[in-house]
Design a protein around this nucleic acid. Sequence first.
DNA 1: TTGTATGCGTTATCAT
DNA 2: ATGATAACGCATACAA
Lengths: 342, 342
Amino acid sequence: MKPATIRDVAREAGVSVSVVSRVLNDGPVAFETRQRVVDAMEALSYRPRAAARDLNRSLASSVALLVPDLTNPFFARLADRIATEARAHDIQVVLMTTQEDPYLEADLLTSLLDRSVGGVIAAPTGENPEQWRKLADRGIELVFVSRTVDEVDGADSVSIRNAEAAATATRRLLDLGHRRIGMISGPGHTSAGRQRQDGHVDALRAAGVPVGAELLRHVPYRGTGGADAVSDLLGLDAPPTALIVANTAQVQSALLRLRQLRTRVPADLSVIAFDDNPWLELLDPPLSTVRQPLDQLAFHSVELVVGRLRGTAPSAPRVVDLPAEFIDRGSCRALVSAEAAL
Amino acid sequence: MKPATIRDVAREAGVSVSVVSRVLNDGPVAFETRQRVVDAMEALSYRPRAAARDLNRSLASSVALLVPDLTNPFFARLADRIATEARAHDIQVVLMTTQEDPYLEADLLTSLLDRSVGGVIAAPTGENPEQWRKLADRGIELVFVSRTVDEVDGADSVSIRNAEAAATATRRLLDLGHRRIGMISGPGHTSAGRQRQDGHVDALRAAGVPVGAELLRHVPYRGTGGADAVSDLLGLDAPPTALIVANTAQVQSALLRLRQLRTRVPADLSVIAFDDNPWLELLDPPLSTVRQPLDQLAFHSVELVVGRLRGTAPSAPRVVDLPAEFIDRGSCRALVSAEAAL
DNA sequence: TTGTATGCGTTATCAT
DNA sequence: ATGATAACGCATACAA
């Protein structure tokens, strides 16, 4: 059984295809005529073919959502919220994963060129600025979320204040008396990776605490980098008494290594992890974290694309900076002065 | 800058559009001519518009992947693997989430009718058999993974042997001396929910252990059903000494409640959870689980759609039943006879 | 092997 | 308000 076309509907309703088309796009149609057409569509269970519409229109209604890693609860949950938000705005989103691979990302981006999407919400790897620019040139609306690509202008961006969030975590540990604080953050080519490290260092400087370069680690998102960094840090002559894991993807790997090394938290090491997720609360002890406002991230990113798609939006790129929330759970302990001096 | 069309390429290469089209679809073209065309495409950075190709024939090459819940690590990770597998086969997958909502699922399914996808891999809610049938009637290849919809025939299916897996878990607990075993499984309208409960009951019967109906709970995937079931079970006059959480989505919720109730695992309660994920290993104690072979699920489901899309596949629906693996970690303890009799 | 002509389902233009 | 018809970009019989 072949799907009904617009012509079938027109015939059934005794009108021309133009009228049917206008009904579909709420054009000017006499009330009674519209009713007949609607009935005909119903009777034939007609559905306009997306491919055929996109062919003529430049107005593509669907948007793509590009996340770097679905196995990371943060991005999986972000995708979930964004899907919900998009549904509320009645726009179709197609989800794709780059798996933190620049080549895959590049492939997907060029494939997006062919597909007729009106916009893209993405947490980019940061390695394909030229490709992103091509999309922008094609008139595709760009909204970066959680991460951004500085080289691309004209794109909106939604994220937390990474430097501030990291500084908050750092100050918390400083207040508890820690002086040697290890930090595992994302690769330097990602905005989040840089900014969080910067915030951390700034907080240390502001407190007059020496910045130990050997305590600062940039670690790739994929692989066991987080675990290896943990081993390295704990193997130092002067190992850290506290650790901030700011590389969301490596939290699990880092925690696993700590367990394998039988490092007690917080007795041996105080720990703060970026990005809350339900499992962190189940750990023993429950982990203190920096929580990103998922709902807000989702809300604003969808809001921004929709705004541009509907045409109602200033042409200038907009940047939404959200505060992160520090959640104290009990994975950090105060150092007594004797230990601090050690 | 407007994207180049097939006509532009033809002009640039000094050939007709049909030649270019044949180059795109590896039709018969003289070697030298093909070279010229390829060069022209390169020069114009030409990319065939997906919408235009789909319009002609249902040569649709892309497939949709429908998962019910991205916040559930099992499905998020399954989606990740399937994406990888699909990439290996060089086919585009668009990911969508039904969020365990039958209405959303229905919407997505009808939207898939308009979109030109060649196939769908899905873990269905089980509530929209008619919609699924419509897709099948339209010639869209269906592969159910992890769950299935019995009412739809003609669809392939890939999943673990749920009953067997549940029985294995149950026998494990029986061997340890447990006689009152609680089970929290998915809703009765899902295949997995039914089969796991059946396997559990069969194992009990085979061992001559009375089946306590009050110990069997079907719990919805969304919400706090898992936690509530835990409270109920532990509040019974004769509470269970062991618990199987076979509702993947409710594992986290159930564990959280156990922690809140200060129920010690395994001292007060032995626990087995369905679907391994990296976080379970980090818990204290690490949780014993029934692990589904993610890679195999992904491999076969992609293999099946691709087979049908390429046309090389028997017309009869195929069913792939995979064994699950029981992972013993230490969240179950042996009951001494005195306790068992209690 | 290559070119011509036509169709795919929809929207846009321009009459009526 | 409605209708006829030309695009849109590509694939494909069929002819050359």
